Simulated assay, not measured.
Amino acid sequence: MGKLDVSLLQYITKEDFRVLIAVEMGMKNHELVPGPLVAQLANLRSGGVFKKLRNELCQNRLAAYERGKHYDGYRLTNLGYDFLALKCLSVRGSVVGVGSQIGVGKESDIYVVKGQNDRMLCMKIHRLGRTSFRKLKEKRDFHHGREMSWIYLNRLSATKEFAYMKALHQRGFPVPEPIDANRHCVIMELVNGYQLQQVHDLKDPAQLYSDLMELIVQFANNGVIHSDFNEFNVMITDQDKPIIIDFPQMVSTNHMNAKMYFDRDVQCIITFFKRRYGYESELYPDFDKDVERIYDLDKEVAASGYSREVNAFDDMIGKQNKDDEDDEEEEEEDSD
């Protein structure tokens, strides 16, 4: 882990950003964006665009030129996409400085950033595709016949997370306060605590176990299921109070597999507490008996203006997960 070097950001001109945005727009439907299309989308002279791409943006690793099977073209790098998001967040005043990296996962990078009034915040950069969804590159045409890029997938993931975090925070759930989002970056409150998987001693394991099970039920009572409720996505404060993070996998209780996701969340907590703290309880929630919907938080998110992006992300991930399961079954049959 280190620091995201944003020193170059101050030297990027408006024309540079126009070219980067043009490449971004082209990548919605192309893995590699042809140079003439970049010039057309940027509404700049072709000669000037090629010079900026080759001599400035590619040399600074904000874009990359590659030779494809059928044609050559440009793509944004992770750093280039980071710069586009940070530029917008800085213009809005949500981020005025970037600090050190404090976390890294298979699907995200986490940084400390400075917001308004020197408030220290957390920036989550979605990095789907690093190790997950391994077949997506070969199956880019599964969403309404369009080819999907990592950039689009990460933007949808961040949009969904911000939408659910905002709705949950407004309902009083123990989640980080959402501040802002742009593209694949989500700015939120910096939680003063530790991941549950880092905590080896608890004052009262039974109380925390009960609190977490109650949260799973309260999520469901409000119409949503976390779907990834485990020791990596539960933060613990110094008072042993839980704060829940990471919401891209959240689903509605109306989902066809809602009970399976609910039971999986419950089992993750049961298994972890038994393994880590030696704590076992006969009490755990049942989806059919203990869930009673009292609020339609899932419908609230759908009506919030984020529904198109959230549904698109869910469609893609659902399709990808099914394809991966089918591939794993085929591999098992071949091994037999």
Results as ranks from 00 to 15, higher is better:
Met1Thr: 11
Leu8Asp: 15
Ala22Glu: 10
Glu24Gln: 08
His30Asp: 15
Pro34Met: 04
Gly35Trp: 01
Leu41His: 07
Ala42Glu: 07
Asn43Gly: 10
Leu44Lys: 08
Val49Cys: 03
Phe50Leu: 12
Lys51Gly: 00
Lys51Met: 03
Leu57Pro: 08
Tyr65Thr: 02
Glu66Tyr: 14
Lys69Thr: 15
Gly73Ala: 15
Leu76Tyr: 05
Thr77Asp: 11
Tyr81Leu: 13
Asp82Val: 06
Leu84Gln: 01
Lys87Glu: 10
Ser90Tyr: 04
Gly97Pro: 01
Gln101Leu: 13
Ile102His: 05
Gly103Ala: 05
Ile110Phe: 13
Tyr111Val: 06
Gly115Ala: 01
Met120Val: 09
His126Ser: 15
Arg127Cys: 02
Arg127Met: 06
Arg130Gln: 12
Arg134Asp: 14
Leu136Cys: 06
Lys137Thr: 05
Arg140Trp: 00
Phe142Glu: 10
Phe142Tyr: 13
His144Lys: 15
Arg146Gly: 07
Met148Lys: 11
Asn154Leu: 02
Leu156Pro: 03
Ser157Gly: 04
Phe162Tyr: 14
Tyr164Phe: 15
Ala167Arg: 04
Leu168Gly: 03
Gln170Trp: 12
Val175Arg: 01
Pro176Asp: 07
Asn182Ser: 06
Arg183Tyr: 06
Cys185Lys: 05
Val186Asp: 02
Glu189Tyr: 09
Asn192Ser: 14
Gly193Glu: 03
Gln195Pro: 09
Gln195Lys: 12
Gln198Trp: 13
Asp201Gly: 01
Asp201Phe: 09
Lys203Ala: 14
Lys203Ile: 13
Lys203Pro: 09
Lys203Trp: 12
Leu208Met: 03
Ser210Thr: 09
Asp211His: 13
Asp211Cys: 07
Met213Cys: 13
Ile216Cys: 03
Val217Thr: 09
Phe219Asp: 00
Asn222Glu: 12
Gly223Ser: 11
Ile225Gly: 07
Glu231Ser: 04
Val234Trp: 01
Met235Glu: 05
Gln239Val: 13
Lys241His: 05
Lys241Gln: 10
Pro242His: 06
Ile243Lys: 14
Ile245Asp: 04
Asp246Asn: 11
Phe247Leu: 13
Pro248Gly: 03
Met250Glu: 04
Met250Cys: 07
Val251Met: 12
Ser252Cys: 14
Asn257Val: 00
Ala258Val: 12
Ala258Pro: 13
Met260Trp: 06
Tyr261Glu: 03
Asp263Lys: 00
Asp265Tyr: 00
Arg275Cys: 05
Arg276Phe: 02
Arg276Val: 14
Tyr277Arg: 02
Glu280Gly: 10
Ser281Ala: 11
Tyr284Val: 04
Pro285Trp: 05
Tyr295Val: 01
Tyr295Asp: 10
Asp296Gly: 01
Leu297Ile: 09
Leu297Asn: 04
Lys299Asp: 05
Glu300Trp: 09
Ser304Glu: 03
Asn311Leu: 13
Gly318Glu: 04
Lys319Tyr: 14
Gln320Val: 08
Glu325Lys: 12
Asp326Cys: 06
Asp326Pro: 00
